[in-house]
Simulated scan of single mutants.
Amino acid sequence: MNVVIAAMSAPTHMNGVSRHAANLARALLSTKAISEIHFVAGAWQKEMFRGALGVCDPRLHSHWIPLREANLSRLFWYYRELPCIAAQLEADIVHLTFPAPTAVAAYPCATVLSLHDLYPFDIPCNFGRLKSAVARHTIFQCVRRVDAIACVSSVTQMEFARRFPTLTHKTQVIHNVVEFRVPASISGRLETLKGYRFILCVAQHRSNKNIPLAIRVFERLLGKRILPAETRLVVVGIPGPETRNIEEEIRNARLSRKVLLFSGLSDAEMRWCYENCLILLAPSSMEGFGLPVAEAILAGARVVCSDIPAFREVGGEACHYVPWTHDPVEIYVGAIRDALGATPYRCVLSLQLAAASIGERYASFYGDVACATFARRERFREPVRVGSGPAGIPWK
């Protein structure tokens, strides 16, 4: 089976969607059902994805498209150019790693969409008025025109069913890959953490991640001397609409030397953070999957997180869950105090989340989708007429 993975997006540093795209490629390469993978992304993403893919397999072909990085250019590329590329590559499946503009009946093969969340509907402030409107329109268009949708969690599938009840037959839950492929290492900017204890928060700078809340919790922990004065709060995530509020919160709390903001860490550096943190703190109000929680559990870290369905789905009994109340800071402080006094939950995540297992699930899913798409298109194909045409020329 020949698969095109469309991973072109704006960021030059890893986020959840780009990590999913790289993990998807590696997962598919672990199966024998996949004959070729064409990984298509922007030229500005080349270095990021080369490090994340980290595989040398003759079946993997990387294509770096030299577009302008403007959003409009990427939208037109998905709408007009990607179907032509899929035809030239004789693809059996085109896999969109996030909702993208999709023309009606544009592809010569079956199309699959990875759906991570429905933030443009649920949290439009993450994008701004114009971008959220464009994102909602894109989702409406894309989910109707693709042949199948792989939801990264049951939570995402249920939210999709609530908003698109007539399209639920297209969906199947296939979780993200959760595994470490490289050993932990500390280098570069992380050298400043040597010798310090730290709390880890892995989150993009978006409102649903509640990073300002994490900073207030950290401030209270220091004030009550639950944490030693030299402890740090490490926030790993790409900048976004909440960056200014986060920086203002740090200044107001006078914690500029103790709250460290990082982005673009390698897989090895992320693993070092998980394995060496006192606690992973995840106070999100909404998530589609909760990859940091899953990775922290895999690394053997203590996890204190909000009590939301996505975290329950991946965290099970391994986390200290915090319900939403009128005073979340004090509740989180209490939960962290309890977690620090407890033995870390040494849990090995289900093998169902390993790349080989996820790859097999996708290969099977692709096969079903390709067969169903072929059968559906055959039903609507013009019937062959038997007999002779003008001048005795057979009908075709």
Rank of each mutant, 00 (worst) to 15 (best):
P99N: 04
T12A: 13
A135Y: 07
I65N: 05
F289D: 04
H63R: 12
I5Y: 05
A91P: 01
A363I: 09
C347Y: 14
C347W: 11
P212Q: 11
M48Y: 01
V329G: 03
L213A: 09
F180P: 03
R145E: 11
R381D: 10
F311L: 10
S132M: 02
P66T: 08
G16L: 01
L53Y: 04
I331V: 15
E159T: 10
I199T: 01
S9Y: 09
V55R: 08
P120S: 08
T111Y: 07
A268T: 02
A87K: 14
Y79E: 11
G341E: 13
G128Y: 01
A282R: 01
G240M: 06
F218P: 04
Y196V: 04
A105V: 04
G128F: 01
R129A: 14
L130R: 12
C319F: 07
R232E: 01
F311T: 00
Q204M: 12
C273I: 09
S18K: 06
Q157R: 13
G42V: 05
D327E: 14
P292F: 03
R257Y: 07
I215Y: 03
L29Y: 04
E287T: 04
L193E: 00
G264T: 07
T111A: 08
K46M: 11
F380G: 00
M14H: 08
P212R: 08
T166L: 11
I246H: 00
L340N: 07
S154H: 13
I199H: 03
L340H: 07
V134H: 03
R50Y: 09
N252K: 15
A253G: 11
S263H: 13
D368Y: 13
G367M: 10
P83F: 03
N210R: 14
F198H: 01
R197S: 06
